[in-house]
């Protein structure tokens, strides 16, 4: 069994199996964010519901954390292994079809790690701007709406977010279809649809996440 798990193919499974829940989370998170367009009540209510989950929320958080760490560590191992597989590189390398996003997974991934740390300290732990902790709406719920408006009104913070989410989209751009390929869920019949839908998902993620800070920055949402 150990040789199975450490095989190159099984490592692909692990990357896909850890990546897919993360992508589902990214999607869910994105849909949550977009509730800002439904008004303060909707998003504050959503946030309060999540907080109300209590232990279950922590279970989700810990699961996501484990998946994320596994994904990140394994990708680093794979990166090193792949570099070692070609000890002498080409003098004049060329790329035929590999997309830019597929070739920069390690870079986008590492930046996403940093971005995520920032994001957690910014909106979850709320230590970058401690005033976030004291925002409550009329019903006494944490006023996430105002927090987002406050947070994204700062153009330098918004720039960090824009960079982060675009790279997240870029990561998904390659990851979505790639995960299905790794799990062997592609075949001659469906490959072309999957290879079209996967990258589209990446674009949706980038746009879906970028639209909130942009709208706040440009005062579409006040």
């Amino acid at each position: 069994m150990s040789s199975y798990i450490t095989s190159s193919v099984a490592k692909k499974y692990i990357m896909a199996l850890t990546g897919i829940p993360l992508m589902l989370f990214i999607f869910g998170h994105m849909l949550g964010n977009l509730q800002i367009f439904l008004g303060a009540d909707a998003i504050n209510n959503y946030a309060a519901t999540l907080q109300g989950l209590g232990g279950f929320l922590w279970a989700i958080r810990i699961t996501l954390f484990v998946l994320f760490i596994t994904h990140a560590i394994l990708s680093s191992i794979l990166y090193v292994e792949n570099k070692l597989a070609r000890p002498v590189s080409y003098h004049k390398p060329a790329t035929v079809v590999a997309t830019l996003t597929s070739r920069t997974m390690i870079i986008t991934g590492l930046i996403i790690v940093c971005f995520l740390v920032f994001h957690i300290f910014h909106y979850t732990v709320q230590s970058i701007d401690p005033s976030f902790k004291h925002l409550f709406d009329t019903q006494g719920r944490h006023d996430v709406y105002t927090m987002l408006i406050k947070g994204f009104s700062n153009s330098s913070i918004t720039s960090i977010y824009l960079l982060g989410v675009v790279l997240l989209g870029a990561h998904v751009h390659h990851a979505a279809a790639s995960a299905l390929q790794s799990l062997g869920l592609m075949n001659h019949k469906y490959a072309k649809y999957i290879n079209f839908a996967g990258p589209l998902l990446g674009v949706i993620v980038a746009v879906g996440y970028a639209v909130v800070p942009l709208c706040v920055l440009f005062k579409v949402i006040k």
């Binding site: 035929v96 597929s102 790794s182």
Partner: peptide, 14 residues
């Protein structure tokens, strides 16, 4: 000692 596949499909193109 071959590397791992990252689904970039350069192989098919070449």
């Amino acid at each position: 000692g071959f590397g791992n596949c990252t689904n970039q499909y350069e192989c098919e193109a070449a």
